[in-house]
Design a protein around this nucleic acid. Structure first.
Lengths: 134, 134
DNA sequence: CTTGACCTTCCCATTGTGGTAAGGTTCAGG
DNA sequence: CCTGAACCTTACCACAATGGGAAGGTCAAG
């Protein structure tokens, strides 16, 4: 299987497959002419990477997960620790975004959205920014 | 006021102040020796930028907001449209993250987190990735 | 006049992804 | 046998937003 077929089989672009190889997430073989060759295990690895990425793990985390996956003597505690840290980060991010959404909804709700210039949204940003109000 | 003072007054790093100038969000003056000079209006602009960034607006959006802020004949509809689009994007992002969190919580809840290798988290990622299950 | 704290520009790194160009290979059809 | 399409390779550039650092100029206080 060459890289194009691997891309189709794994759902990961050629570009990203080469990138993952570059950062040592997988080591496909090479044919005599220099073409990369992918076996079933490589496809499985690529799909593992895709699944972990869809769960929001960073590529660095995916690298760690891959190592744990391939380590028969791993401790599930290590996987759980990594996952819990990720969940915590995701929750923090969601909290940030929700705070923004809350503020923005309030402001947008107070904005007439008509042809006149008066706008609570702009006013609020500007007054938060007003040095004389600091 | 030179850039160091402007950074303190606005809460924006020297680095970012120069970057915002580079992308034309503000045009500070220069002294004879080439030092940037910031007046009260520049500080206000920088704080406006900071306030908008804290609400999650992209720098491109901030540029648009700045233009609207400075446009006395703006329509509040334009501001609202921009804001509503941003809110929609934020909500979509939150939904994505919450979906990840939900899955991860389930998996982490089923993981013993002990010294043994058995781990539902890894298993789930690997089975999602299993080409024979596709 | 030196020293330290500024300032300037320019380049590099990050994260994850896409694009593009220049060149080699392989295969099918005429 | 030749040509063109459809692959493959490497090596760059780009994005968004931020930080780091080097090399050099400037200024104010002592």
């Amino acid at each position: 299987m060459n890289i194009g077929e691997a891309a189709k089989a794994s759902g990961i672009s050629r570009k990203m497959i080469r990138y993952y190889e570059e950062i040592a997430l997988l080591q496909p073989g090479r044919t005599a002419n220099g073409y990369r060759v992918y076996g079933p295990q490589d496809i499985h690895t690529l799909r593992f990477i895709g699944a972990a990425r869809r769960l929001g793990f960073s590529v660095a985390d995916v690298k760690a997960l891959l190592a744990l996956w391939q380590d028969r003597s791993r401790s599930s505690a290590d996987v759980k620790r990594l996952t819990d840290g990720h969940i915590t980060a995701l929750r923090a991010r969601v909290a940030e975004l929700n705070a923004m959404i809350g503020t923005l909804e309030t402001l947008a709700g107070a904005c007439d959205g008509d042809a006149r210039p008066h706008c609570p949204i702009i006013n609020r940003i500007a007054s938060t920014a007003d040095p004389s109000s600091a």
